[in-house]
């Protein structure tokens, strides 16, 4: 059923794919940063502070999306007893955590000149901090335990607990009054961001996704090598 993502198939191709992806990432990040910092217009209220958004928003999306993937894969690995899903989850976590921190830090840098504060305990920001804690616990759960089985169990539990937080983050700005503004880029309703600002946002988003993919493939590769060294070529 899950033959396509069998580690033995991925192993042969991932080296080449990784190089191509990294090359693509360099091109896109240069184009994205030029677009975000230079060619895109300033905002009518925020002025140049709007440029922080081109890093902040993709980072936040990716950290959310990555945790969603970790959660769903962990659930699937529990249902189908597929260890490979767990290894994929494990390899996704570090870049997701990094983007979570980037989102929090850039948000804070943006908040000071616009809101007038570095930090606010509103629902969105607090839930995002909670996601960071879940990421940290998830990553640590793979480090602190001795037995492979314990690692897998504990990390799955953390992933399932944490996945409940994901929709809370997404909809916090609609459910409660928050200092954080509600979302400007909408699929179902009209977006409230001007099209000239969508361009750099999309380029940066794609660049960051590719970056995550490169990090993931590197991690996954080394996990597979570790497994092969243990003499377990079947999962």
């Amino acid at each position: 059923m899950f033959k396509i993502i069998n580690p033995n198939n991925l192993f042969g191709t991932s080296n080449k794919i990784r190089k191509v992806l990294f090359f693509l990432f360099i091109i896109l990040i240069v184009a994205g940063l030029l677009e975000a910092l230079w060619f895109s217009p300033k905002d009518y209220i925020q002025n140049h502070a709007v440029r922080i958004m081109y890093v902040h928003v993709p980072s936040a999306w990716i950290s959310l999306g990555t945790f969603l993937a970790i959660g769903v894969l962990s659930i699937f690995s529990f249902i189908f007893k597929n260890k490979n899903f767990l290894i994929i989850s494990k390899c996704l976590a570090s870049s997701g955590f990094m983007f979570n921190i980037v989102a929090l830090v850039t948000g804070s840098i943006w908040g000071k000149p616009t809101w007038g504060t570095w930090w606010a305990w509103d629902a969105r920001i607090t839930a995002m901090l909670l996601l960071g804690i879940f990421y940290l616990m998830y990553i640590l759960s793979w480090q602190v335990f001795e037995k492979e089985e314990t690692k897998q169990k504990v990390s799955t539990i953390i992933a399932i607990l944490g996945i409940v937080n994901v929709p809370i983050i997404k909809f916090s700005v609609d459910w409660w009054s928050t200092l954080h503004q509600s979302s400007s880029v909408n699929i179902l309703s009209e977006s409230t961001i001007h099209s000239s600002m969508i361009v750099p946002l999309v380029i940066m988003m794609v660049a960051f996704v590719i970056f995550s993919a490169v990090i993931f493939l590197m991690k996954y590769n080394s996990e597979i090598i570790k497994l092969k060294n243990k003499g377990l070529d079947r999962l």
Binding site: P41, K42, I45, T117, L179, Q181, S184, T192, I193, S196
Partner: peptide
């Protein structure tokens, strides 16, 4: 006092 920014983003 904190300023609340809304979800509208556009050039001047």
């Amino acid at each position: 006092i904190l300023a609340k920014h809304d979800e509208n983003y556009m050039p001047p």
